[in-house]
Amino acid sequence: MNLNIVITGVGGQGNVLASRILAQAAVEAGYKVRTSEAIGMAQREGMVMSHVRMGECLYGAVIPDGKADVLLGFELAETIRGLPKLNKKGVVIANKSCVIPVSAALGISSYQRDKLTRYLQDHVNNLHLFDATALAAQAGTVKATNIVLLGALAALNLLPYTCADLLNVVLESVPSKFKDVNKRAFELGYRAMEV
């Protein structure tokens, strides 16, 4: 088993936490793990991409182009930016919600939400597109968007560990006062894949 997961989003969306949770669960399941994360200047509202690799024989942490099995997109446009990493048979689990960059408000570039959504629908065979931010808000805080997406990923049976294993690591990774809201977020994400 070798599984490559790319996570894309915007600095501040909990990208690093999500990749650590996926990796920790893999370590607990006895796999070798590599992650690579964007830390530093990119955190300030910039584009971020995390790489998570788990399996038996691993070298570098950065996933080559076309070698990701799963693309977890925390933000609509950033999901598209991650597509070159995805294997043609790969699965995309993505958030419909957008984070509009300053450049769009300033008119330096444009954020064409409908075009981007259509592009994803036209170009990805294995697409699960839903409003994870809305589900996180329903769970109690939009900050749990990352956990909603982990719940959705867990529902697709792609990971080398169970949904309960992943949820356990989620709950160990968040402060105790946020356990309930994260549990709800995880379950809402999980259920979003059932329909």
């Binding site: 600095g11 990119a42 509202e45 910039g46 076309g66 950033e78 960059p101 450049s103 064409q112 592009y119």
Partner: peptide, 19 residues
């Protein structure tokens, strides 16, 4: 042979900015 990636649509520019 590298898999051919479709041309991406016009993407918004996203650079790090002051919070």
């Amino acid at each position: 042979r590298k898999q051919e990636n479709e041309v991406l649509p016009p993407m918004p520019l996203r650079t790090p900015v002051l919070c």
